[in-house]
């Protein structure tokens, strides 16, 4: 199941879980599992590429209806490649840190590559284990980019 997931893109994975339900909450948290690690809090407190861009190729907003998290992605695209990216939004630590981390990742990436980003890659980027509910917060930024790119076509 796990290896199969690796090959799936975010679109195919919405609603699917790669986590064993019986393992959520089992045992004490190790340092690695602490959800609010410095890395996440750093991105949350001092987000990278936060703000807006004018005359963008693409500006798209998505919400997480669960909690009102909101992420807007501003993308400059030239020759199917990202030339600049900024994000704006409000919401929980995970959704905003994830958006910040994603803007780092997207720099100069080709659109083809973006479309192939997997759920597991985002989870790895976040670096803390999340259950199916909080995963939606983590995936909001990528979902915003993917939905925006769909609209562009």
């Amino acid at each position: 199941m796990k290896t199969e997931m690796k090959t799936e893109t975010i679109k195919e994975q919405i609603g699917k879980e790669s986590i064993n339900p019986n393992q959520i909450g089992e045992g004490p948290l190790t340092e690695e599992q602490q959800i609010y690690k410095e890395n996440i809090l750093d991105h949350y407190r001092n987000p990278h590429h936060k703000g807006t861009l004018s005359n963008t190729t693409l500006t798209h907003t998505e919400h997480n209806p669960l909690c009102g998290d909101m992420v807007t992605m501003h993308l400059m695209i030239k020759n199917n490649q990202i030339t600049d990216v900024k994000f704006d939004g409000h919401g929980c630590t995970i959704s905003q840190a994830s958006a910040s981390m994603l803007t780092d990742k997207l720099q100069e990436m080709t659109l083809d590559k973006i479309k192939k980003i997997t759920r597991d890659e985002i989870m790895e980027m976040i670096g803390v284990p999340l259950g199916p509910v909080r995963s939606r917060c983590a995936l909001l930024a990528l979902r915003t980019v993917i939905k925006g790119l769909e609209n562009l076509q």
């Binding site: 948290l29 959800i35 909690c67």
Partner: peptide, 21 residues
Amino acid sequence: LHPHDVATGLDQYGVAVRAGH
């Protein structure tokens, strides 16, 4: 502080509360 962060923070202490709308 977003309610989800409050709830996840409390969950790490074993406390189950609801967060959201």
